[in-house]
């Protein structure tokens, strides 16, 4: 990730960078291979679903914004 990206992540996530959907947004998210969550896939794009958090939502959005080619790219 470039310098700009890192700064961006710092601003929205308060220092914790979430690079991939599998990385937990906060301690509320418990999805792993061993402790799976049935809502995981939907949660990647539309989450968080199990708790309310604007910050966690923004972390997901940041992952998507980084690679979305246009407004139709992400299918919600």
């Amino acid at each position: 990730m470039g310098v700009n990206g890192a700064v961006f992540y710092f601003i929205i996530c308060g220092g914790e960078t979430v690079e991939r959907f599998i990385d937990p947004c906060c301690s509320e998210c418990t999805h792993t291979q061993e402790t799976p969550c049935s809502q995981f896939v939907d949660c990647c794009v539309n989450g968080p679903l199990c708790h309310e958090s604007e910050e966690c939502k923004q972390k997901r959005k940041a992952i998507m914004d980084r690679v979305a080619l246009d407004s139709k790219f992400v299918i919600h």
């Binding site: 990647c44 790219f73 992400v74 299918i75």
Partner: peptide
């Protein structure tokens, strides 16, 4: 991740 963004695994 990109596959998931494009509606994958839904």
């Amino acid at each position: 991740d990109e596959y998931i963004m494009r509606g994958g695994y839904r």
